[in-house]
Design a binder for these strands. Structure first.
Lengths: 148, 148
DNA sequence: TGCAAATAGATCGCGCACAAAGTAATTTGT
DNA sequence: ACAAATTACTTTGTGCGCGATCTATTTGCA
């Protein structure tokens, strides 16, 4: 009974689970991010830049699985909020390089509390969470592959 | 090392995994649903109504974790497409009852292929998928609880 | 060298997603 | 009985998310 004879039913349930769980995370983050005046996608961009400053839009998009039509306006808003700068790469004027401002870097310290709250709400041991994460990532990559 | 001392880092990674995996599902569904002229959220609504016809908006929203301000325009579009009807409940004129039309019911047959494709793309045995689903659902409900 | 193809972003249009505020019907409290 | 509170849904405004299309820059290759 462990044969992958017909996954269609289970996969149908799973896609709904992911859909609603992802929204649940967004809804949990929203009030926490409110005092920083960040939306959840904006926060994910900041996390990515805290991890690696100076990325261009394409690079950022490939890690977040978002394309430039989503990121361009979002990045403009982060720029307007004074958290990042957007400058063309002199070596290749097609690229827009994204750099944290002082204010953007400073936000990282204050955002530690947010992570803390999420960790508590998840209320699972690190090992279970990590297993869950890697299973989901593997599934995501397989779906991404199928979609070409 | 299995103590939940500090989940914040892992939980941070996990929320991103869910975020991107959910999008990956959407992107996989999109081309499959195109020939039915349905978006992914519209499809989820149809699945819910195939499961239980005659729900009202609130009931539908609680199963999909969406509120009426998202559903109202979506349901109007499904109505305009001739897939559902929207009628006030005579017993309580506040409620809008959602019923499948003949065309809406007929769509269910043709949608079997979609589930099939998703099941194949997931490419995991049913048991693993089911475990994954139930873990995510439990997490989602805990997050939902935390958000009050 | 010259010019087509490829690449990086930006813009536009449409459909979610959700907070806030509005409308109408029903229930509750006195 | 009837005003206040509650409930179900709609409307409005803002910000994603993405396909399609556009502009500007760089690369390839004949």
């Amino acid at each position: 009974m462990t044969q992958p004879a017909d996954n269609s039913g289970v996969a149908g349930m799973l896609c709904f689970s992911l859909y609603s769980a992802s929204h649940a995370f967004t809804q949990l983050y929203r009030p926490l991010l409110e005092k920083f005046e960040l939306t959840y996608p904006q926060y994910l961009v900041m996390v990515s830049l805290w991890n690696k400053d100076g990325q261009n839009v394409k690079e950022l998009g490939s890690t977040l699985f978002l394309d430039s039509s989503t990121l361009s306006p979002l990045l403009k808003r982060l720029n307007a909020a004074g958290l990042i700068t957007r400058t063309r790469n002199p070596q290749d004027e097609r690229e827009v390089l994204l750099h944290l401002t002082e204010k953007g870097r400073a936000l990282q310290e204050r955002a530690g509390d947010v992570m803390q709250c999420i960790g508590e709400a998840a209320a699972l041991d690190a090992e279970t969470l990590e297993t869950l994460r890697s299973t989901i990532d593997a599934l995501r990559d397989r779906l991404h592959q199928s979609a070409n």
